[in-house]
């Protein structure tokens, strides 16, 4: 069962016996009523298809960067790389769409309720992130690859520029994979 942070519904709970009421006392009955059972959900559910999709796109991307490492490119031979760009960007956009669909089916958590509960016992509020990390990081990877492709097509890339695109894409990809994998709980 899940608590207000999700759309879970409560299942009927058997009433306490008279003996139990006597034994555990009214204090615990209040606790029972307050907790009303339930697991909380503060983040999206894990989706193995998303995690696998990200890992697969990452393998393709890392292979591509490894092939370019230490080299320079020229617009004249851009056609040789065009297919690789399309494969990586296409795979990432597909994962991005999967994340979007997954989020629409499991809406973002509501931290307001948790923060209200924490506030009552003097615990500072949890900050809310801007957007869901996985989706946001994947969109940055896509943007990195698209910018790299555009520049490559226009006037080629220096070895340093390739290294900078590689570093940038890998950092964002690492954020997305870590978050999506961490959702497995």
């Amino acid at each position: 069962m899940t608590f207000p942070f999700s759309s879970g519904t409560k299942s009927p709970r058997p009433p306490l016996s008279g003996f139990a009421r006597h034994m555990i006392g009214p204090g615990l009955l209040v606790v029972v009523a307050l907790l009303a059972a339930c697991t909380v959900r503060m983040a999206p559910a894990y989706d193995p298809a998303i995690a696998n999709g990200l890992n697969s796109a990452n393998r393709t991307m890392q292979t591509f960067f490894a092939g370019l490492s230490g080299t320079t490119t020229k617009p004249a031979d851009f056609a040789k790389r065009q297919g690789a760009y399309a494969d990586i960007i296409g795979a990432l956009k597909a994962v991005s769409l999967q994340i979007e669909i997954h989020q629409s089916l499991t809406p973002p958590p509501d931290l307001k309720t948790v923060n209200a509960m924490l506030g009552k016992i003097g615990v500072p509020n949890l900050a809310t992130g801007s957007g869901v990390p996985g989706a946001s990081a994947v969109s940055h990877v896509v943007n990195t690859l698209e910018t790299m492709e555009k520049t490559d097509r226009k006037h080629g890339l220096s070895a340093m520029e390739i290294a900078a695109f590689d570093g940038q894409a890998t950092i964002y990809m690492s954020q997305a994979i870590t978050y999506e994998t961490f959702l497995k709980r």
């Binding site: 697991t39 909380v40 959900r41 503060m42 983040a43 958590p109 931290l111 948790v114 949890l126 900050a127 809310t128 992130g129 801007s130 957007g131 869901v132 990390p133 996985g134 946001s136 990081a137 940055h140 940038q168 950092i171 964002y172 954020q175 870590t178 978050y179 961490f182 959702l183 709980r185």
Partner: peptide, 23 residues
């Protein structure tokens, strides 16, 4: 952007950890 995205990811991970802790 990547510093912001890193912080955002970190917050997301902490949220999951807190969820597990509460549960």
């Amino acid at each position: 952007q990547m510093a912001t995205s890193f912080a955002n990811t970190l917050i997301g991970l902490v949220e999951v950890a807190i969820e597990k802790l509460i549960n």
